[in-house]
Design a binder for these strands. Structure first.
Lengths: 163, 163
DNA sequence: GGTGTTCTTGACCGAACGGTCAAGCATCTC
DNA sequence: GAGATGCTTGACCGTTCGGTCAAGAACACC
């Protein structure tokens, strides 16, 4: 899956054939279709895995932080590091959002991320650290800004902690 | 080209075949290859045309405005309207950036946009309306924010002037 | 009406793709 | 060691794709 993700990110999903993937890792085509139902399903699994990995990284990072605001900041910071370390996956996310059959998985992942952020924003409002505005909107703003910065990070050479 | 752009945006570039395009507008395949060298070239022309149209729209809108700050604001505002009116093209831009053979055209267009913005930022600095910082960085920030807002505009139902 | 040029057709082509499958190897169980 | 099960192979299949081209309309010019 790692190899396929790398090829998809570099060459694009459609231009990368199943034959190219299996010959790249030195196995027969049957192995591919033993473990994956189709090329589409493989891509969806790569997507899902990436989202889960990012989320786990976030949760692991903020587990010991009590202050809601710092949790949010830590979450953003560790996300930037994750995107920097998995630069090629950003390309995959971007492509996935352009084809209707892959976009739903992406949207669901973003909803989860927003829901996570909403909880922390609500905590921050209760603690009086944030003005009493719609937490959903603020959470969307946080996620939107983070993903935008991640995209910028590909094209430039910025260090993650700069954000 | 308009029809092809619509199909590309809805179905994706690769899943949309040349046969689908020509039969959709009721002509033979030969017509396609009389006017376009290849499917790739068609896509590049769509991309280039869209960028030119956006830029012309911007320039036309700010032609009568003297104040640099207002020129920038007007440029952003009219861009948002343009993206709202050509929502499907955002999908195309996004896809184009994920395949190496289309990305250069996109990058060149963005460089032009940044160069445009740099001129106005410089004017604003000379006029004392903006703090004396690196104009290039400020221009990048303006373009980055605008394109981010444009992307958000697709997923939601925001009105352009709200920005 | 003859002649050359511009455009249009759609059957056709080779190549490449995603996916299948009969056959074989490896491993485990009894 | 016989047999069942899990894994692997790669030739092969049907289909579809981007692109070609001989054949002809349509039009212009004289």
């Amino acid at each position: 899956m790692a190899f396929a993700a790398a090829r998809f990110a570099e060459n694009g999903f459609h231009p990368t054939s199943v034959a190219e993937i299996v010959s790249g890792i030195g196995v027969g085509k049957g192995v591919f279709y033993w473990y994956f139902e189709s090329k589409d399903r493989l891509f969806l699994e790569i997507l899902r895995d990436a989202q889960q990995d990012l989320r786990r990284t976030q949760q692991h990072a903020i587990a010991e932080e009590d202050d809601p605001i710092h949790r949010i900041e830590l979450g953003i910071r560790v996300s930037m590091h994750w995107f920097a370390a998995n630069r090629h996956l950003v390309n995959l996310f971007q492509f996935a959002s352009t084809e209707e059959r892959f976009a739903p998985v992406l949207r669901r992942g973003q909803e989860v991320a927003v829901a996570d952020a909403v909880r922390h924003v609500k905590d921050a409002i209760v603690a009086g650290e944030v003005r009493d505005q719609d937490p959903e909107i603020l959470a969307h703003a946080v996620i939107g800004l983070t993903s935008h910065l991640a995209r910028e990070l590909i094209h430039n050479r910025g260090e993650a902690p700069d954000a």
